Amino acid sequence: MTDDASPDGRPDGRPDEGPDTGPDTGPDTGPDTGPDTGPDKALTAAEAAVLAYEGRTWPGPGAKERAIREGLGMTPVRYYQLLNVLMDDPRALAHAPGTVNRLRRIREVQRARR
């Protein structure tokens, strides 16, 4: 090793930063957790369960909310928040088109009334 070489053996004195992989595109923000995770990504088990619950019929008031708490382990408020996001998710449409389209029609009717 010569006197002008860095401790890792680079002749220019700069530390080795690994192979150049092209321009830096910014920090890695981790996995995409939003609804638009792409058509190649499958729904999570919770998302699929929400769509399955929404596709069922319920015997009376309160039964669905009780089943959401007991069966899914989430509050009804969280359930409906997730369901609202899923209504605009193309993965949900591919998974349960009848349920998603029915929910979208209901939402549009409600919006038109306002």
Rank of each mutant, 00 (worst) to 15 (best):
P59E: 05
P27C: 00
P35M: 08
G26P: 00
Q81R: 06
L43S: 13
R105T: 01
T44P: 11
A49E: 08
D8C: 11
R114C: 07
S6H: 13
T29P: 01
G18K: 12
R91W: 13
A96H: 12
P35G: 13
L93F: 04
P7S: 04
T57M: 01
Y53R: 06
P11D: 11
R107H: 13
P59N: 00
L43W: 15
R14V: 00
T99N: 05
W58D: 09
P7E: 05
P76R: 09
K41G: 02
G38F: 01
T21V: 02
A94N: 08
D40G: 06
R104N: 04
D32W: 09
P27Y: 00
R10S: 03
T37K: 14
D89V: 01
P31K: 07
D20F: 08
T33R: 15
R91M: 08
L83E: 00
A52G: 06
A45P: 08
R66V: 11
G98P: 07
D88V: 04
G34K: 10
K64H: 15
L103C: 07
T25G: 00
M87V: 02
G73I: 00
R113T: 13
G22N: 02
G18M: 10
D20L: 03
W58A: 01
T29R: 09
P61T: 14
L51H: 11
T21R: 13
R91T: 06
